[in-house]
């Protein structure tokens, strides 16, 4: 097992296909409404007519596939009154269902909306980094699924050596809150955090 597992996203390769989302749903039998991995579409740009009646535009869009980032300083763990939410020795943040009372404080705390409440269980659920697959030496379902090899995982330090430590593009929150184990290679459309150039344009899908 890894010590500090992290996700790496190559935005140059992400087409927003959502195969990662379906692989996750299938692997974990997620019921409708619970999506441990979500692909948001960040879109912006305007259309303006010139003197000849022709439109000019500066439209851009990109996708970001984000699940739990198994943060170094997980606010969900800090928010949990029962210690159900915990970061294991394998670096994976997960919920102990024997302790979880479904108070949803973790959900309110997490800026990535990673912990999600299950009406059926009355408890929180979240990405467990496919701990069982990792124990078997397999990649997490989302990573193994990615058709364009945009999504990877590994030891944080090794990924950082290879790809740098960028972890912030719009519309992600400041990494200072939780120190996410996430590394991103932005693509040419990517806007800096806090940019007002675009917005999440698929709220109904995430």
């Amino acid at each position: 097992m890894l010590k500090r597992p992290a996700f790496y996203i190559d935005m140059e390769a992400c087409t927003g296909c959502k195969t990662c989302m379906i692989a996750c749903i299938d692997k974990h039998d997620l019921p409708k409404g619970i999506l441990w991995r979500r692909v948001s579409e960040y879109t912006g740009g305007d259309w303006n007519k010139d003197g000849n009646g022709k439109y000019h535009q500066n439209v851009f869009a990109y996708y970001l596939s984000i699940s739990c980032n198994h943060c170094e300083n997980p606010i969900c763990v800090r928010s949990c009154p029962t210690t159900a939410m915990h970061k294991g020795p394998d670096g994976i943040v997960s919920v102990d269902h024997d302790k979880c009372v479904g108070c949803r404080y973790c959900e309110w705390g997490c800026p990535y909306s990673a912990p999600q409440y299950s009406e059926g269980l009355g408890k929180m659920t979240k990405c467990d980094f496919c701990r069982d697959y990792q124990r078997e030496g397999k990649s997490p379902a989302c990573v193994a699924a990615c058709p364009n090899r945009a999504l990877h995982y590994g030891e944080y330090e090794e990924l950082a050596d290879k790809y740098g430590s960028e972890n912030l593009v719009a519309p992600l929150p400041s990494p200072n809150i939780t120190q996410p184990n996430l590394i991103i290679t932005p693509n040419r459309n990517a806007k800096p955090a806090g940019s007002q150039a675009g917005k999440i344009s698929n709220p109904e899908e995430v």
Partner: peptide, 15 residues
Amino acid sequence: SLSAGGLFYGLKKAN
């Protein structure tokens, strides 16, 4: 029945 609320998933399913 899964759609209606879930029998097993997440950690329980993983174990």
